[in-house]
C-alpha cells in the first residue's frame, strides 16, 4: 500500500450538541485511509457511528451535529477547510453516496431522468441532450431494462431494487473516486441484495473507484471487502485485512459479532448474542466503551480507554487483552 490514499481521515470528531448540555460523541477520534480501487467495510451495530462517519465525509451533518476536530483529505485536498460552495463541487463529483432507504431517497415529484441529468449537468457542464444520453447509458449499465422509458417515470413506479439501481446510476454518473454505500442492501429483499452488491463491485472495477461499504452484515464483509474496520461507540475498535481479521479476531466485540452469525457447519439451538445495547453516545463509560458488555472485562478496562495498537500486519485493535495474548480461548462464552 505504498500508493497515495484516495481518502485520508485523521482524528475525526463529530459531536451532537443536545439539549440540557449533553454532548453525543457520535464519532470520536476516528482515523483511517481508503486506497485506490479497494473496498473497505465499516462494520458495527446501529448507533455505533458508521453513518455519521460517512455523512461527516460528505459534510452533510445536520444541526445540532458538528464536526469538531480532525482532517479529511481527499486526493490531497483538505475537505474540512473548503467553503460550502466548493464542497458542492466535491459532493457527487469526487465522492458519491448511496443510501440505505431506496424507497425514500429519490424525490417523489421528479422523473428519474431529471434526477440523474441534473447531477450530470451540474458537474460536467454538458448539454441537456448529452446528459440525457449519458443517463440512459448509465441506466443500462446498472442493469435497468427499458432505460429510455424509465427516464420519464417517477420513483414510485419502480421497485425497491430498481430504485437502488437508479441510486447507483446517479452515484457513478460523474465517475467519483470514492463511492460511499451506507447499508445499501439493508432495505432490500435477500435475493436482490447480492445483485446490488455485485453491481457495486462491478462498478468499482469498471470506473476504478474505491468503495467504502457501511454494513452490519459480516457475511457481506467477508465476500466483498478488502479491509474491515469495526466501529463501536464512535470509535474504531479493530481494523485489518478482511481475511486476517476474520481469522484472528482480537477484539471481544468483533468476536461477539462473529459468534452471533449462524454457522452452516455447527448446529445450535440459539444464536449467540452480545448482551446489552450500545451505550448512548452522550453517556459512554469512563474506560473502554465496550466494558459494559464485554465478557472479558478487567479492572484496567474500567479505568481507561485503550489506545489502538498494531497486533499483526496492518491489523490494529483497541483492547487491553492483546497484552495478555489476545482473547482467551474460552468456548463457553
Amino acid at each position: 500500500m505504498a500508493e497515495q490514499p484516495v481518502l485520508d481521515i485523521d482524528k475525526l470528531k463529530t459531536y451532537f450538541y443536545l439539549d440540557d448540555e449533553k454532548v453525543a460523541k457520535a464519532v470520536d477520534d476516528v482515523s483511517f485511509s481508503v486506497y485506490p480501487g479497494e473496498t473497505v467495510a465499516l462494520v458495527g451495530e446501529s448507533g455505533s457511528g458508521k453513518s455519521v462517519t460517512a455523512l461527516s465525509i460528505m459534510q452533510l451533518i445536520n444541526k445540532p451535529g458538528r464536526i469538531v476536530e480532525g482532517t479529511i483529505v481527499m486526493n490531497g485536498k483538505e475537505l474540512l477547510q473548503m467553503k460550502p460552495k466548493q464542497m458542492t463541487k466535491v459532493r457527487g463529483n469526487d465522492i458519491a453516496m448511496v443510501f440505505q432507504e431506496p424507497m425514500t431517497a429519490l424525490n417523489p415529484v421528479f422523473t428519474i431522468g431529471n434526477q440523474i441529468t441534473e447531477m450530470i449537468r451540474k458537474h460536467q457542464k454538458s448539454s441537456k441532450n448529452q446528459a440525457r444520453e449519458k443517463a440512459i447509458e448509465l441506466l443500462k449499465t446498472v442493469g435497468i431494462p427499458r432505460a429510455e422509458d424509465i427516464m420519464n417515470e417517477y420513483p414510485h413506479q419502480l421497485s425497491g431494487g430498481m430504485r437502488q439501481r437508479v441510486m447507483i446510476a446517479i452515484a457513478i454518473s460523474c465517475e467519483p473516486a470514492l463511492l460511499i454505500a451506507d447499508e445499501p442492501t439493508t432495505a432490500l429483499d435477500v435475493t436482490i441484495q447480492a445483485q446490488i452488491l455485485d453491481l457495486m463491485a462491478d462498478m468499482r472495477d469498471k470506473y476504478h473507484m474505491s468503495l467504502l461499504l457501511i454494513t452490519h452484515d459480516l457475511g457481506v464483509v467477508s465476500e466483498y471487502a478488502d479491509r474491515v474496520m469495526v466501529m463501536y461507540g464512535g470509535q474504531i475498535v479493530e481494523e485489518g485485512p478482511t481475511k486476517e481479521l476474520l481469522r484472528t479476531t482480537n477484539h471481544p466485540y468483533t468476536k461477539g459479532l462473529l459468534n452471533s452469525l449462524p454457522n452452516i457447519d455447527k448446529h445450535v439451538d440459539r444464536l449467540e448474542t452480545i448482551k446489552g445495547t450500545v451505550p448512548a453516545a452522550f453517556n459512554f463509560p469512563k474506560g473502554c466503551r465496550f466494558s459494559t458488555r464485554c465478557p472479558y472485562v478487567m479492572d484496567k478496562c474500567l479505568e481507561s480507554n485503550p489506545e489502538i495498537t498494531e497486533v499483526g500486519p496492518e491489523h490494529y485493535v483497541r483492547c487491553y487483552l492483546h497484552e495478555n495474548g489476545g482473547i482467551p480461548n474460552d468456548e463457553s462464552r
Binding site: 460528505m58 452533510l60 459532493r91 443510501f99 431517497a105 446517479i170
Partner: peptide, 21 residues
Amino acid sequence: SDYIRTARAKGMSDRNVLYKH
C-alpha cells in the same frame, strides 16, 4: 427528508435544493 439528503449528496446547490427539491 431522505431525498433532500440525496440531493445535497449529489452536490446540488442550496438554492436548487430549496427551490426545486
